[in-house]
Simulated assay, not measured.
Amino acid sequence: MKFLIIIPAHNEQDHLSFTLNSLLQQCFRDFKVVVVNDGSTDKTSEVIKKYTDVDSRFETIDLEKSAHQPGSKVVNAFKNGLKTQNIDNFEVICKFDADIILNDNYLSEIEKAFTNNPKYGLVGGLLYIEKDGNWIYEGNSNKHHVRGPMKAYRKECFLDIGGLRETLGWDNIDSILLKNLGWEEVVLPELQVKLIKVKGADYTMKSADYYGRYFYFLGLNRFLTYVAAAKEVMKLKSPSFLFQIISSYEKCRSQNLELKISKDEKKVINEQRWNMFKKKWFKI
Rank of each mutant, 00 (worst) to 15 (best):
Q85S: 10
N86V: 11
N86W: 06
N86Y: 06
I87V: 14
N89M: 11
F90H: 11
F90C: 09
E91M: 13
V92G: 01
C94A: 14
F96E: 05
D97K: 07
D97V: 13
D97I: 11
D97G: 11
D97C: 10
D99L: 08
I101A: 13
I101Q: 15
D104I: 09
E109F: 06
E109A: 09
I110E: 06
E111G: 12
E111S: 14
K112I: 10
A113Q: 08
P118K: 14
P118R: 13
P118T: 12
Y120A: 12
L122P: 00
V123S: 05
G124D: 04
G125S: 08
G125L: 04
L126K: 07
D132S: 14
W135E: 05
W135I: 09
I136F: 13
Y137D: 10
E138H: 15
G139C: 08
G139A: 10
S141G: 05
S141C: 05
N142G: 10
N142V: 12
H144L: 08
H145R: 11
V146T: 03
V146S: 00
R147K: 12
R147A: 05
G148R: 01
G148D: 04
M150F: 05
K151V: 03
K151C: 04
Y153A: 03
Y153T: 02
R154A: 06
R154V: 02
E156T: 12
F158L: 04
I161C: 02
I161N: 00
I161H: 00
G162C: 03
L164G: 03
R165E: 01
R165C: 05
E166A: 06
E166C: 07
T167F: 01
T167H: 00
D171L: 01
N172H: 07
I173E: 00
D174A: 10
S175A: 05
I176K: 02
L177I: 10
L177T: 04
K179A: 03
K179E: 10
L181F: 08
E185Y: 01
E185I: 04
E185K: 03
V186E: 00
V187G: 03
V187A: 05
V187T: 12
L188A: 07
E190M: 08
E190F: 05
L191H: 05
Q192G: 06
V193E: 02
L195H: 13
V198M: 08
V198A: 09
V198W: 06
A201P: 04
D202E: 06
D202S: 10
Y203R: 07
T204V: 09
M205T: 07
A208M: 09
D209H: 08
Y210F: 15
Y211S: 14
G212C: 13
F215Q: 12
Y216W: 11
F217Y: 13
G219Q: 10
